[in-house]
């Protein structure tokens, strides 16, 4: 693959997937600054892995895999939550301009949602980020290496747990 072709494919991939990829990082790390750093690492890994894409899977599954795997490894920097916020509790209202763009009520709900997701287990946070972005159970199973049936059961449990957390707040 020539450099020009790589640039073209990379640009197209980014254009159509960047929001989903960013939200996977954000769902797992639940802090904007960390999610931005992770997103950058994801882009680097996508670029480095482009030569290895062999059309065996959908290109979207391919980039989601890279994103999920990069995000899993990014966990080593989990302690940075403390360094950035000065406490163990991240500020879920930190995303700027959100209130002006979404309005007070929606912005508050989004902060609640982020907080509820942050209370889920590591694997659950990643899975729910993909579910919320309407990635199919089959694709999530392929990305994680878990059977489709099992993912279905797991998603059902995570959705219940998320609803309970949201209702409790």
């Amino acid at each position: 693959m020539t450099n020009q072709e790589k640039h073209k494919i990379f640009g197209q991939l980014l254009e159509s997937n960047k929001d989903k990829l960013y939200r996977i990082c954000l769902g797992y790390l639940y802090e904007k600054n960390l999610a931005e750093d992770c997103f950058q690492e994801v882009l680097i890994n996508i670029w480095k892995s482009l030569d290895n894409f062999k059309n065996k899977s959908q290109i979207s599954t391919y980039v989601y895999r890279i994103t999920v795997n990069t995000t899993i490894s990014f966990n080593k920097k989990e302690k940075r939550h403390k360094q950035i916020t000065g406490s163990n509790e991240p500020d879920f209202n930190r995303i700027s301009n959100e209130t002006t763009e979404l309005g007070e009520e929606k912005s508050e709900k989004l902060a609640m949602l982020r907080k509820a997701i942050s209370e889920l287990a590591d694997q659950e946070r990643l899975i729910i980020s993909m579910v919320l972005d309407e990635i199919s159970n089959k694709e999530i199973g392929e990305i994680m290496g878990i059977s489709q049936n099992h993912i279905g059961v797991k998603i059902h449990r995570i959705k219940n747990s998320l609803s309970q957390k949201l209702n409790a707040t």
């Binding site: 960047k18 929001d19 990829l21 960013y22 939200r23 954000l26 769902g27 904007k32 999610a35 931005e36 997103f39 950058q40 995303i95 301009n97 959100e98 763009e101 979404l102 929606k106 709900k109 989004l110 949602l113 919320l132 972005d133 309407e134 998320l162 949201l166």
Partner: peptide
């Protein structure tokens, strides 16, 4: 509603 809310967060919101 949760899904729609979640999707309001995009990469365009970050300085990238």
């Amino acid at each position: 509603e949760i899904q729609n809310l979640w999707k309001k967060q995009g990469a365009d919101k970050i300085k990238f």
